[in-house]
Design a protein around this nucleic acid. Sequence first.
DNA 1: CTCGGCAAACTGTGATCACAATCATTACGG
DNA 2: CCGTAATGATTGTGATCACAGTTTGCCGAG
Lengths: 229, 229
Amino acid sequence: MGKPARKPLADSQAVHDQVYDAIRQALITGRIAPGKGVSLRSLAAELGVSPMPVRDAVRRLVAERALAINPANKRLSVPSLTAERLEQLSLARLWVEPELAARAVTRAAAQADAGLVRQLQAIDAEVDEALRLGDVDRYMTANHAFHFALYERAGAEVLLSMAGGLWLQVGPFMRVVFGRVGADGLVADRHAEAIAALKAKDADGARRAIAADLSEGMDKMRAAVESGP
Amino acid sequence: MGKPARKPLADSQAVHDQVYDAIRQALITGRIAPGKGVSLRSLAAELGVSPMPVRDAVRRLVAERALAINPANKRLSVPSLTAERLEQLSLARLWVEPELAARAVTRAAAQADAGLVRQLQAIDAEVDEALRLGDVDRYMTANHAFHFALYERAGAEVLLSMAGGLWLQVGPFMRVVFGRVGADGLVADRHAEAIAALKAKDADGARRAIAADLSEGMDKMRAAVESGP
DNA sequence: CTCGGCAAACTGTGATCACAATCATTACGG
DNA sequence: CCGTAATGATTGTGATCACAGTTTGCCGAG
C-alpha cells in the first residue's frame, strides 16, 4: 500500500515523534517479535507516513538499543533477548528503579502529595483487572503506567530516562514471558506494598517493594529465556 | 561555503557515524560549550558534509542526552550543566563504572590477560604526561581511553553502553573544571591502584579504586558548578 | 526433482528541495 | 534617542530522488 489510510494518531507533536511512540509501543507489547527484521519503508507504509520521519524515529530507537542494526548488512532488526543481556538489564533496573521509587516517596511526602496515592491505586486496579482478564497488552501498558507514574515524582530527569530506556529494552521479553507462563499472577502484590510505603512515607520500604517487584518479574523472564530461545 | 574542504576523517564507516564521532569529540573536549546553540546546517558546513548525515548523528546524540532540543523552539543546544544533573550523573556513574571495573578484572584474571596490564600502564603514562604538560584535550582523551580500555574487558555490552552515555553527558563539565581548577592533579593516582588491583586479580579492589577515582573527579566538578554557573 | 545462477526487488544512505515557524536585524515612527 | 513593527535570514521537518549493496525469488539446465 502506498499511503491510503493516513492514521490520525495524535496531533500536536511532530510526525517522527508519533512514529517513535508507535514503534515503541509495538516493541513493548511485542507486536514486533524479537529477532524479526524490519525496514524503514515497510514501517513507513504500515504507519502511512513517508520514510523520512521513520528514519528519525529509528535512529532514536537504535541509540536506545531498542532496535539493532546489523553492522554487515546495515539492516534493522529487533534485538534478540539473550541471557547475558537480560542479566545486565536486570542488574541495571534493580539499581535505578528502586532508587527512583525511594526518591519519589521522599519528594511526595515532602509535598504532602495525596493525589499520587489515589492515582497509583487507580492504575493498580487497572493492572489487576488486566491480569484477571488475561489481557497481556493492557497489563503491560498499565504496569508501565504504574511504575512511571511513581518514578516521575522523583524529579530525577537523568535517572528517569535511564529507567525508560531499560524498560524499553526489556519490553519485548515481557511479552515472551506472558505468552509462555500466562498472565496468571501468583505474584505477591508488590504494587500494594509500594503504595503502602508511599502512604507511610517510608522511602526505604518503597525501595524494597519495587526491588521485589522487579526481581520477581525478571526471574520469570530468566526462566523463560533459559527454558527456550 | 558550500562544501569546499571535505575533511578526510576516517574512511570505511558511514558518514553519519563519522559526524557522530566528530560532534561527540567536540562535545567531550568542550569545543562546543555547554548552553551554546547549534544548528544542523552550521554543523554540516563546519564538517563539510550535507545536512542529512548530521541530522542522523544529532538524533542519536539527542537520544543519548548529549544534545538537547528546546521543545518550544525545536532548536538544538548543548545541555547546560546543573547541580541536579551532575548529582544524578555522579550517582549513576558511581554505580555502573565500578561494576564494570570489577567484572573486567574478574574476566581478565580468568583469561590470564597480561596484555591488558601493559596496555593500561601505557595509557596511564599518557594520562600523567598530559597532566604534567597541562594539555587538557590530551588528558581527557587519555583518561577516557584508560577507563574504557578496562571496561571493555568486562564483556558487558549493555552496561558498557550505559557508561558511554553517561561519560558523554559528563564530558562538557570536565572541560569547565579543568578550565577553572587547572589540570594540576594533586589527585591520588587511582589509576595505579586500579592497575595494581588488576595485577592482584582483586576485583573488589578495582571497584574501590575506580569508585574513588570517579568520586574525586565528580567532587571537583561539583565544586566548580556550585562556585559559578 | 534438485541445484545453480541471473535478474528484479528491496535495503540503508546521502543529497536536494519546499515549507512553515522562529529569530535577528533593520528601518521607521514617536 | 528609544521603542516598535516589519522584513530578511535561519531554523527544523518532511518529501522525493538517486545510488550502491544485498537479498529474494524465479527460471532453466542437468
